[in-house]
């Protein structure tokens, strides 16, 4: 992999991100509903006060000027001020993003941890009871709505058994050291094992809710891809050479079969980052997705624009890393 190619690929991301900015800007601007009216609500106000508020929010400028101001400022890391939080948007995002990232990472770990071994087993024992059970569980996982599954987990493990906390990231009485904002990581880095344990305890149910649904899809992809690879001539050849079973499956089979799994995992990570509003709401998880949805209802343009841009940035970043991973998994793949 040449460094130049990587740079070229990175440069290609710029128009993508510009496109995202434009689409999001147009969507929030064209959606009916006036942030000034929402903010003033039902209270008494003069037209002058409304105009002053409009000016403070920068909404007195024509749309194209607002767009280029947004792009110009965004490049320097300034995303403007949130209309409703009434402070810089970047602060709001910086507070919420680590919670979403942490949940995504743990959910994805659970999903891959379940999907890859189960996918391999199902492929090896195709048509067996194990394969059927795995397929059925995966079908259930894909079709189960996240909010329902989440609430069922809460009712069983938090209310009836009392094993798990219902909501939040960590017990309020525990000290949370600050570093990255990801509590699991920060508490380990500072040797606060009590906080780590409690945070793990809190993240388990939301991460399971997201991870199980995700693992269902990943398992099916891994299984299908593994079945295809196992039918290749080189597998037969390797088997004829007398290679051990484990080595055959893991080195020769899995390595080749993983590419579709990596692709889907990268796409699903994007979904987890932006689409887990429901799970964040059910488990009172203070993540980015929830704050963006609140922003949409209150027409908090700067917050929505910046929030979506950050998610898009991570999404293209993850997919870029996935592309790089292909070349590591299978050196024949060229960027």
């Amino acid at each position: 992999m040449r460094f130049g190619v990587v740079l070229e690929r990175l440069a290609q991301l710029i128009p993508v991100l510009f496109g995202v900015c434009l689409v999001v800007f147009l969507m929030v601007t064209l959606t009916p509903g006036d942030p000034v009216e929402i903010m003033l609500g039902n209270e008494r106000s003069t037209p002058e006060q409304a105009e002053e508020l409009r000016r403070q929010m920068g909404l007195h400028l024509p749309p194209h000027e607002r767009f280029f101001a947004f792009i110009g400022n965004a490049v320097t890391g300034d995303f403007g001020r949130s209309f409703f939080h009434r402070r810089p948007v970047i602060e709001v995002i910086a507070e919420r993003l680590p919670a979403t990232l942490e949940l995504t990472i743990v959910a994805m770990t659970i999903a891959l941890g379940l999907a890859i071994p189960l996918g391999i087993l199902a492929a090896l024992k195709r048509g067996s009871w194990l394969d059927r059970v795995a397929t059925m569980v995966s079908l259930a996982g894909v079709s189960m709505p996240g909010f329902w599954f989440g609430i069922m987990l809460i009712m069983l493990f938090a209310v009836h058994l009392g094993w798990m906390p219902v909501s939040g990231r960590v017990d309020y009485a525990l000290e949370v050291p600050r570093l990255t904002g990801m509590i699991l990581f920060d508490s380990l880095a500072h040797g606060r094992f009590d906080t780590f344990r409690d945070a793990l305890h809190h993240i388990l149910m939301p991460a399971l809710t997201l991870g199980l649904a995700m693992s269902a899809l990943l398992m099916r992809v891994t299984r299908a891809s593994m079945i295809e690879v196992l039918q290749q001539d080189y597998i037969l050849f390797a088997e004829a050479k007398g290679i051990g079973r484990a080595r055959l499956i893991l080195r020769h089979g899995l390595r080749n079969a993983l590419i579709p799994t990596v692709t889907v995992a990268a796409l699903e990570t994007g979904y987890l980052l932006g689409g887990n509003t429901i799970v964040e709401t059910v488990f009172g998880w203070p993540g980015l997705a929830r704050v963006i949805v609140e922003g949409i209802f209150s027409r908090d343009y700067p917050l929505v624009q910046a929030g979506v841009l950050v998610i898009a940035l991570i999404y293209v970043g993850v997919n870029f890393v996935a592309d790089l991973l292909y070349t590591l998994i299978n050196p024949r793949v060229k960027l």
């Binding site: 609430i151 209310v159 909501s167």
Partner: peptide
Amino acid sequence: KIIPENASRVA
């Protein structure tokens, strides 16, 4: 404690 979802708040 901020718990926006009704069912979770009751839980």
